[in-house]
Design a protein around this nucleic acid. Structure first.
Lengths: 248, 248
DNA sequence: CTTGATTGCGTACAGCGTACGCTAGTGCGC
DNA sequence: GCGCACTAGCGTACGCTGTACGCAATCAAG
């Protein structure tokens, strides 16, 4: 395993009682406190001083458990990504892929402030690798042929990440869930902005406002996801038809 | 139009010769210099002092043209997004959507360091709105029915953004284009990382390494894109078949 | 009790964005 | 020509950030 940061060679003996009046600092406590702060006040406003204070400790104490802020954030992300691990499932590969994608998206939206860190790049931490390997294995077992497995995985990942990132951003903008009747107001507001853009036909800007103000929700996410899955299934059928002997 | 930052009410009369020995500071010159610095040294390392120096000016001079760093970066992004504006095209909607998506992706990959800023969120700047409105209008004219236009737009946008973001990251990791024979090394390296992850069947990690080490390239991008487009086309056909009178 | 390791802490510093006020140069009205 | 209002450019200074470093307190083992 990769060496722990400042190498806690001898971990506290676990049977020792609370060694200090204040609850002891631990990786887990730091992580969950950091996550709370991020969820509450945003990723950008998190700083080490506030984190120390929220923990009832000093700023620098955190550095006994994490080499630096980047490593801390990485661990927070891993903490969230743990939850993406696929449960036992059955059904054809389409159904499973759908469930997996929805699960990842839900996980990202559970912490919109972290979504950027989660979805912006392919992460190589042990946790991320394990979760992704498990997802890939599910797809393989569910019947996606080996030859199409990479294409399938990356296509669905890309769509899921891309959509969830946009969605997370719109949740960050207004911290409350979209009010039921707000649809009209949204369109009008965007239409007003579009009208102020020079060199734009009013007809065009009207149509664009309708499209761009459309709320990003489950229904719309599933539209794209199902289209993508259906398109891939078509390819799989073709592959099976043309080169059947390639299958084990 | 929205008020210019410090309101340059009277712009320099344009016929005036170079008023100083040093080339005069201007929005455009600042923007292109900033973009060069970002491309060369990365987004994170850009700071106002270095930017001033690269311009042959002082740090604070930039603030005469941009209210703050965020606004500057926004303008840099807009500068790049300008290039996404769709050219005149013809062909069915599938072909046009394909071209548009490829164009956006290419634009993002032309500046991998900026990709995060471009693709992470839906931007509301006049430039972004104009470009997006033009793209939507193209899709509409090419025959995407109004009722499916929002779903179609967001699905393709999400996929394109999501894929290009991942791709940009992998370009940032190694500044050189992927060497032709490096494929095997990539797989082995990832396989080694996966082997070190606990609780992972060697068989599974082997399969995952193949999938995850797959380079993100044109071919793979087009696989997902074409699947998505084909899936959407199927929906459009269905819509036309069931409710035909909805069309104008 | 001594020794060595480990956690928590306070201080201090460098890098960042940028508020503020000064200066020198410009075009306009007289 | 002469001021006048305005502006682009600049230097200084401040507050906030991450974190290097060394000391203090704690505890296990000898």
């Amino acid at each position: 395993m990769p060496d722990q940061p400042p190498s806690p060679a001898r971990p506290p003996p676990a049977d020792s009682p609370a060694r200090r009046a204040r609850p002891e600092l631990s990786r887990d406590r730091i992580l969950s406190t950091a996550l709370e702060l991020i969820d509450a006040h945003g990723l950008n406003t998190l700083n080490m001083r506030d984190l120390g204070q929220a923990l009832g400790a000093s700023t620098m104490s955190v550095y006994r458990h994490f080499r630096n802020k980047a490593e801390l954030l990485d661990a927070v992300v891993d903490h969230v990504v743990e939850g993406f691990a696929p449960p036992a499932m059955d059904g054809d590969w389409q159904a499973q892929a759908r469930t997996l994608s929805l699960r990842v998206r839900a996980g990202m939206l559970a912490h919109p402030e972290l979504a950027d860190l989660i979805g912006r790049e392919f992460r190589r931490s042990p946790t991320s690798l394990r979760v992704n390997a498990a997802i890939i294995e599910r797809l393989r077992q569910a019947g996606v042929p080996r030859a199409l497995l990479p294409d399938t995985y990356w296509a669905i990942s890309s769509y899921t990440n891309g959509y969830a990132l946009l969605e997370a951003q719109s949740r960050r903008r207004r911290r409350r869930p979209p009010a039921p009747g707000a649809e009209v107001g949204r369109v009008r507001k965007l239409a007003a902005m579009l009208d102020e853009v020079e060199g734009l036909d009013p007809q065009v800007s009207q149509a664009a406002a309708v499209v761009l103000s459309r709320p990003l929700d489950d229904r719309q996410f599933l539209f794209g996801l199902d289209c993508l899955i259906a398109g891939i299934e078509e390819r799989i059928r073709q592959a099976r038809a043309t080169g059947d002997q390639a299958e084990a």
